[in-house]
Design a protein around this nucleic acid. Sequence first.
RNA 1: CGGCGUGUGGCUCAGUUUGGUAGAGCGCAUCGUUCGGGACGAUGAGGCCGCAGGUUCGAAUCCUGUCACGCCGACCA
Length: 579
Amino acid sequence: MKLSKLVGSRFKERPADCVIDSHALMVRGGYMKNVGNGIFSEFPLLKKITAKIEKIIREEMDAIDGQEVLFPVTLPADLWDESGRYESVGNELLRFTDRSNARMVLAMTHEEAAVHLVREYAQSYTKYPFMIYQIQRKFRDEARPRAGMIRVREFTMKDAYSFHTSQEDLEDYYEKCYQAYNRIFARAGIPEVVTVASDSGMMGGNISHEYMLLTPVGEDSIVVCAECDYRANMEAAENKIVNEDAGQAKELQCVETPECKTIEAVCDFLNSDVKKSCKAVVYQKNADDTFVVAFVRGDYEVNETKLRNLVGGELHTAEIIEEDCLVAGYIGPYGIAKEAEVYLDVSLKGISDLVAGANKEGYHYTGLNLERDLEKAEYVDISKIQEGSICPCCGNKAITIKRGIEVGNIFQLGTKYTKTMNMQYTDENGQQQYPIMGCYGIGVGRLAASICEVCHDEYGPVWPITVAPWEVHICCLRADDTEAKETADKLYQELLKDGVEVIYDDREGIRPGAMFSDADLLGVPIRVIVSPRNLKESCVEITTRDKSVKEMIPIKETASYIKGLRQKLYEDIKEKVTE
RNA sequence: CGGCGUGUGGCUCAGUUUGGUAGAGCGCAUCGUUCGGGACGAUGAGGCCGCAGGUUCGAAUCCUGUCACGCCGACCA
């Protein structure tokens, strides 16, 4: 490929609306173009990269006996009625009607379609286990797309669905997939992707893992233990708290605390320790009238995901008005209105002397002892784990919080979809059974952007050779110089003949600086510089995009040197792939 | 859905406060001089200033509405 023909333009200035580097570089480099809110087109440059990522994914999925299929993007709503998700999923699911007014959806995930495809086929236990996957577009009407290709509304995803006749078999396969995913990310040049325990969310099921690329621009908070292997999404991380120094029990007193509506104000006013205070956070359940009040220690935050799982319904931020049974700013667990559903966080357990709202305008209690003063004090885990907290796995106070991009996930779904959609098989005893499912996703475009995010410098991406748009980039610095042109042409042809993927910048009248800048934006791992200056020494210059190699190579040895270097780059990546 | 912000040639932005009929740099085209980290000069093309109303002799500028995009939050396999 000659660079002069590559569709897509590169430019110097950072686009104004790009917040993260990978977004800015991929726009500047002519990789993609924004079409609408969270919707992008891919130029050839990005398409080449995503095609390589897809190839790696296909190879690894096929290696664990996956079979590629293709589901439609548009699905009749009936199918989503079967699983109940037409109703239960929020606005991320784009619903519309066709010309005959039939209800349709744009698929945001394909569990329903997968069950639909195989439920007649797989009526006998002899067909199991099997896995089907596809690499295809999805649409999710995200409330807030952001960060370029990291969070978009329409995107390419590999989604896989496995079907099993026993939990053990699912777990075996889950483990295989777990390893396949590690190989995929290592082969794509980001072996540093870690797995974390996660919340299953709307997918249902029990066990699930997310594959996280740790980077400060990530939008998920990841809990990592410095002492052991424990890693979890903040949403799912158990918060273990032991209030050892609980203090002396004191008399329960109702004290006046005027205009103290925040926990900080109360503690300031009473000159008390925030760690001995009780903070209330109020939600409303399922948009009905039920208030859900979560109490956590004053220095903790409510983990809404954990709370939502406990409550078993949707939660909305509540606004308390005067007619309500609660007193905004003065809510406490003692003497709270019976209408409210109350949850006490484990962070409150064992504190004998708490400051808490008195459920009365302008008053708080001091000396509150939940075990003593409440009829029933049950504690649940609904607070966010913090930096330095106790690791739920090893018990050390070694928790750190990092940021990560979720590049893939795997779920043990169980029978949620096979039951609701009535998919059954006959087992060896002639009994009807529901198959057990797993599902496994990887966002292709997000993966490409994530690689760029962790593999770039100030001038452009530094693509790992396994996903790079080309392997070698030839810059002919003076295409008007006959000798340079002929040398570069010849090298180009020779490399092509040997099956090397080459982009050849043969443009005349482009100054070296501009040519280098373009090459940096393309991020091709091996660069060959042919110029009159180098030719005086009968050499060409060969560098790597990451600057680790910079050699003058005699012209005659160029092709073999490049092939050797290419080989080495592939091997460097292969070394990090665990078998 | 709430808060904030921005819409002016392909890109980055000025001009809006105080209305007078649109600018700069980059990019693009042609010519010349240049040529190892985004050169210089000359000439040229390209914009009904997001859209719709309104005020006015006159609107990019003031008013009303609307749409789009971005950021923060809520939400999110």
